[in-house]
Write a protein that binds this DNA or RNA. Structure first.
Lengths: 337, 337
DNA sequence: AAATAAACCGGAAACGTTTCCGTAAAAAAA
DNA sequence: TTTTTTTACGGAAACGTTTCCGGTTTATTT
């Protein structure tokens, strides 16, 4: 009923609280005999130290925070999976915060974290954060941050990401090689580094192959699904509608599928589609979807590992590095000639 | 750099720590003038109270734990989404733990939670836990538990779930009405209440329509994807292979799809498939998948709400009730006549 | 035998809050 | 004016750990 604590154990064994504490941590200057007695009673009473008392005293929480824009998304689910695996291995607890792509939520969440609640943060920034003051603030309060996927270029810390530029280039090149000459690019925000990198890859590929300038073929989506659908539908209803689509996130590929079906545009005959995606169902779609697949699980793991490397060394500063894990292009029917 | 605390503020303002504390909580017996001063300085220095000191003193953590078997699964992602939304509204923090369908992990996770780390737990049990001692233990230590989806029948607490029996019945009935006479049932564990309920619905439908006994048509999968694939393939390779499949989880529906494609069995002509699923891509599959879709987001929300209802009333005991949210059957091509 | 070292353990402070209790000054009531 | 109440604040204890600083005993060395 009432939780058992050190004082409890101490009284029962006629020992001092400090002795019990050290016995449990197997301290060198406690006798073997007492150690055994203490451990035995602790086990019997199912003693578990109060984490908050411990955190308060040690100024360490053994907890990390994961901040992500959304969770109903295969990439982030898989990343969390990787993070949680490493955290559990290291005996850390993981708090999860979802910003819902909302800058203000991101702000208030990070305020909560600034006073010792967590030892470190893994984050993927929201799509509409363009200033980084709140991030710098947190970092200055000595809570280390590691970015994954949606990184912040100008914060000095470790960043785990994929070869976005190259993948963007390859995706576009793939469409061109499959015969597309009028390729559209779909992304969700102007602010995101990954979106921009992928777009640069796209633009450079367009340039290299001397296709016509795609000014009007770039669609910036939003968080609003309806809106995105209408934009894509409009794109596909235009007179000179694209014959290829490169979607920078899987959600937009699906809206493109829906729009194409609605408009009776055949994939891949009339429209080829390639997309960044971690969809388990990509090979089962009608038609199966050509994807650029990021190693999401691995990215999560690596992010967690680099954070813990710093935490293990009593907060050694995190190296300002960018670790790039390659995405792989998996050609399927949606881009077949 | 160094974190600002109450002592800090007190010294700066020539006040006692207690005064500052009460001023910040807008206590009635602090003068308006001092309140203003304190608030102003706190804001200026970006003061954020140390959560662990507060938790220790108040014996409340404003944190809940979510324990789920896996996260790379649309149902659980959506449920977490709902949970997180309510938690954020209530100013609670959410710790996440993944058991990976491992009873022992579930055990050790729940040990961590028994000494005040969280004020309450939302959980969906692992597929291979059949004893519930660890759950009872936690409950006896005064941490309230609410189950969602994968509930534990014989723990007295609130349970949020779907109409599994009825849905199982309806799913089977739907297959029968679409012309199936030899229907197989795919599930992941013998221990899960939801699996059993769905199975009972299935069996009762079979009985009602006087189809032949489906002893050999029930496949118990596991956590091993390869293994499941082989079992399903074997099922579909048999002489009297089924003409209908009812999958109790979306993962197994996908393996059925893969197996059918591999064996060149046409869906829905030679094999109709219906499945419990929260797949966003269900309408885009080849063929589009008939699903029983649970209101995952709502389930998460309701679970969180019933937990918070208890927490708000200073740990009023949770009513032993079962809240059932209906799943909806969405017919698509995979079960077309 | 005396001095030193080693082995074991207790007391108390500290982490940063919150809250109980007490008290001085000011205001109100007598 | 005296007494009581109210207002506004300070002091200190408490939450449960961990850890610093000791201090006995016993064993070892000189």
């Amino acid at each position: 009923m009432t939780n058992v604590n050190l004082k409890h154990l101490a009284k029962e064994l006629n020992l001092a609280v400090s002795t019990v504490s050290r016995a449990l941590r197997d301290s060198y200057d406690i006798g073997e005999e007492t150690k055994r007695k203490v451990m035995a009673l602790a086990k019997k009473l199912n003693y578990e130290p109060n984490p908050y008392a411990s955190s308060l005293r040690k100024q360490k929480s053994r907890t990390i925070a994961v901040i992500i824009p959304e969770i109903a998304n295969n990439f982030f689910s898989l990343a969390i999976n990787g993070i949680e695996e490493i955290a559990q291995e290291k005996g850390y607890h993981v708090l999860i915060y979802i910003t819902h792509e909302d800058y203000n939520k991101e702000l208030s969440i990070m305020r909560y974290l600034q006073n010792g609640r967590v030892d470190g943060v893994l984050m993927s920034v929201s799509s509409n954060t363009d200033d980084i003051e709140h991030i710098i603030n947190l970092k200055q309060r000595n809570v280390p941050i590691v970015f994954f996927d949606r990184i912040c270029e100008n914060v000095e810390t470790a960043k785990i990401t994929t070869d976005d530029y190259e993948s963007g280039f390859k995706a576009t090149e793939h469409l061109i090689q499959q015969g597309c000459t009028n390729i559209a690019y779909l992304c969700i925000s102007k602010h995101l580094s990954i979106g921009n990198k992928r777009m640069h890859g796209y633009l450079d590929a367009i340039k290299k192959y001397k296709l016509r300038s795609p000014q009007t073929n770039i669609v910036f989506g939003s968080n609003n699904h309806e809106e995105n659908y209408n934009k894509v539908k409009k794109l596909l209803s235009a007179k000179n509608r694209p014959d290829g689509i490169f979607a920078s996130v899987e959600k937009l590929a699906l809206t493109a599928y829906h729009a194409a079906h609605e408009l009776d545009i055949h994939i891949p005959k009339q429209l080829k589609i390639i997309s960044f995606a971690n969809l388990e169902t990509a090979p089962l779609l009608k038609p199966s979807l050509t994807t650029i697949t990021q190693p999401a699980f691995e990215i999560g793991k690596r992010a967690a590992m680099t954070l813990f490397r710093s935490l293990d060394k009593k907060n050694a500063p995190i190296i300002n590095e960018t670790i790039i894990l390659n995405a792989t292009l998996i050609p399927r029917e949606s881009t077949r000639k």
